[in-house]
Write a protein that binds this DNA or RNA. Structure first.
Lengths: 107, 107
DNA sequence: TTTTATTATCGTAATATTGCAATATTAAAA
DNA sequence: TTTTAATATTGCAATATTACGATAATAAAA
């Protein structure tokens, strides 16, 4: 199989899971941390900073963009990737919501 | 490949990613929500509640246990799965830490 | 002790993900 | 216009994940 049965879950569950999934790779965590630590926008310093091939980094960046956590601006030849702060905070709220709601009453 | 190069990332990055990864499946999100909504401990009501085979649910439960979010107690023939509130809150703090630190200065 | 109910594990098929080399694409620079 | 540099995309190969049937393991009930 290998296929996730998304249709049996509700939208909130699928959205949350999708978001967690994208963050569920150390390279993507590292990318977010690195981007946020720069004062200026970075581009493919990432390839050197993290030890993965350019194609691989590009793929990870794409996934982070897909859930809106990163936005990219073209600056001449280079790309400037930055954290989308609004989206970032929305997600943080959603997560806290999930964490606060999901607390046990039992045992 | 398909293999993640964990050795090139630091412990924090790998830990965070591992945690996100486990939460990155709608069935596991649903399990956590369902467990937390019960007043008593539940066992394999989950199999009926969520529409997946018993073997599959058991597997997902195992993964949630592996990062300490769920704990299981044997009650006769049944298993009582509960949220590990301490671990839950620790993780919530870690996540908020990550979210708060990772905010952009650029663009 | 045998049966029954509940949960875990094993084996396996189908699909997804990771990573990279090779190759586009794009836009500035020469 | 040609070259060069930066990034994206394509096409794999290797590995991981998801899901489930079959089967084992466990403990109460009969």
């Amino acid at each position: 199989m290998g296929i996730t049965k998304t249709q049996i879950f509700n939208e909130e569950q699928n959205d949350l899971a999708q978001f967690f999934k994208v963050l569920g790779h150390p390279a993507r965590v590292a990318i977010l941390q690195y981007v946020s630590n720069q004062n200026a926008c970075i581009c493919n310093d990432l390839v050197e900073e993290i030890g993965l091939a350019q194609a691989t980094i590009s793929q990870h960046l794409k996934e982070l963009k897909s859930i809106g956590l990163l936005k990219g601006e073209i600056e001449g030849k280079k790309m400037c990737y930055c954290i989308n702060v609004e989206r970032w905070e929305t997600l943080q709220n959603q997560l806290n919501n999930f964490f606060n709601k999901t607390k046990s009453n039992c045992c």
